[in-house]
Design a protein around this nucleic acid. Structure first.
Lengths: 328, 328
DNA sequence: CTGAAAGCGCTTACAG
DNA sequence: CTGAAAGCGCTTACAG
């Protein structure tokens, strides 16, 4: 393999000069630069990035920590995160931590050792680590340990969604969603739900537990079993929404006639066949992903970043008035 | 940061000895080993993997190249690939190449430069590269350039699926699926379809074009527009199947009464609400992923690997007899 | 079984 | 603007 040494010899310059050209540093005369570039070309020199990483203590790799990559929201945001990183010369390492909790901790160790330059968390990370915020980490939709995070306006959007259910004529509205172990922006959805129910003096029916992705079914079944006559439901997450669709099909519950559904996510829903029959809060997934990357890269460069970045979500719904009529 | 040097000094041994202990090489007396281990512990030494990668020219990173990660089949197989790699001490880099074709080529360059130790392809890779098979690469469901690949038995399973449609009473059966640019095992599905149609003297209706993921809709619409009276369809890929469901809903085509659907993939279908109304070939996704990793790691270690690894797919269907009755 | 030394391919002060 | 040299933290023959 041809190294920087060979290039220097061929061009008749010092090692440092070649390095400077390679790194596009200023302070190299146009002439020698051309000379070096020419040597690089004729010799077919390829920079050894392993050596560069070693010296610079940076890998140009960012890790994404999700519970499971095999999930519509996570894989979609992963797509945009990777794209944004790629544009900035970084690669994306993905780790699904649900299979083994220790993977989160292991990844943090890797970051501290500079094996990865930074981490984007979309997990229920639960290790207390006061100094974590000093490292290049950013979190999506959850906040912990003073780590900067980006999120959609969970509370406000949820209020809109729940009010819509009320105006559509629902009187027995439930909330269902997975619970996170740490303070999470996702919990704002439940808080908004409760607030709206209280405002309209409607009963608060909450089905919310700490569960793993892929294990939502029992919760959904319990919801229906325990709440006959339920006419509206605010669902946190598409995975659960799809299970609700299944349940309704099997039990001849007509959507939206018997039950009105509002889903928070709208990632998978869009291509589903019930698209005109449910309403949903659509997360700005692409923006969330790209913004998370931007914040992280800033932190990697040592720049200041805001603790909280909030992006607007969009409420998508069918005609509430006719829905109310149908519902009666 | 405490280095191997500090450990050596503290333990009163040479650098090489510490290195040998770290790498668990034999030829170190139990006594000095304990001594070194103790020094490592008290000094809190952490191995600098960037330095190790640099010296050994291996990164313990494998790249996965998919068209888009945001797709049920790809993200599911990615999950298992990551899990299997993790078990073997490797991390997973994911790159969605559909956003920019050059990303595939760039990743191959990275592999050749040892930035990643190997690549798993699940793409329509189309760069001719005769010597690619000399590198640690493996492909899933596509074969090219003598690169080893793992796949499910596309042809046999598709024959079973198509015959089932015939026995269920369908007489105007179509095939629809994306076309790949290179020889792909996926194309075997179409070949099997054609063979079965010929066997039963049924018309061959094929809707197959080179399209991007996410752009399947026009193809689906054309299929229905051009083939009124179609009573059966063999679909390659769940993304398209879901679009067919949508179309049927919107146009009041009852599944399976008016149209019988068999989908090849069965990844997303399982949780859908039509689960008892369509049949599908279920790919052994987990095994495909894990096997791809095993083959790749063997190649990385320089061992011989088979060019082709075939795994059995499963045909899942409802009662074809009653289906035939309903269909008439 | 173990130590001293060379070297991997870069970057980075330091002089000039 | 540019070169010579030191050094990053390891691994790997080479001696012994």
């Amino acid at each position: 393999m041809v190294s920087i040494k060979d290039v220097a010899r061929y061009a008749g310059v010092g090692l440092g000069t070649v390095s400077r050209v390679l790194n596009d540093e200023k302070g190299v005369s146009e002439e020698t630069k051309e000379n070096v570039l020419n040597a690089i070309r004729t010799l077919g020199y390829k920079r050894n990035s392993l050596a560069v990483s070693f010296r610079k203590k940076e890998n140009k790799i960012v890790a994404l920590l999700v519970p499971v990559i095999n999930h519509p929201f996570f894989s979609k945001i992963a797509y945009f995160i990777e794209d944004e990183l790629d544009k900035n010369g970084y690669s994306l390492l993905i780790s699904s931590s649900q299979s083994r909790q220790s993977k989160e901790y292991a990844m943090i160790e890797k970051m501290k050792k500079k094996d990865v330059d930074g981490i984007i968390f979309i997990t229920h990370y639960d290790y207390r680590d006061e100094e974590l915020s000093k490292y290049p980490v950013v979190s999506v939709d959850r906040h912990f340990d003073n780590v900067p995070f980006v999120t959609s306006d969970n509370f406000d959007s949820s209020v809109v969604a729940c009010e819509w259910l009320v105006h559509a004529g629902c009187r027995k509205i439930a909330y269902i969603g997975g619970k996170t172990l740490v303070e999470s922006e996702v919990m704002e959805r439940e808080r908004a739900y409760r607030e709206v129910m209280r405002k309209y003096s409607l009963p608060e029916i909450v089905k919310s537990e700490v569960i793993k992705h892929g294990e939502e079914l029992p919760l959904v079944e319990a919801l229906f079993r325990e709440n006959p006559g339920m006419d509206g439901v605010f669902v946190s997450g598409d995975a659960m929404t799809n299970l609700i669709f299944m349940h309704c099909e099997e039990n001849n519950i007509a959507i939206p006639k018997d039950l009105k559904v509002v889903s928070y996510d709208g990632v998978q829903i869009k291509t589903g066949e019930l698209k005109d029959k449910i309403a949903y809060v659509e997360q700005p997934v692409e923006q969330l992903g790209r913004e998370a990357v931007r914040v992280l890269l800033k932190k990697i460069r040592g720049e200041d970043v805001p603790l909280k970045t909030v992006l607007k979500a969009k409420f998508v719904h069918y005609d509430a008035t006719s829905a109310a009529e149908n519902g009666k």
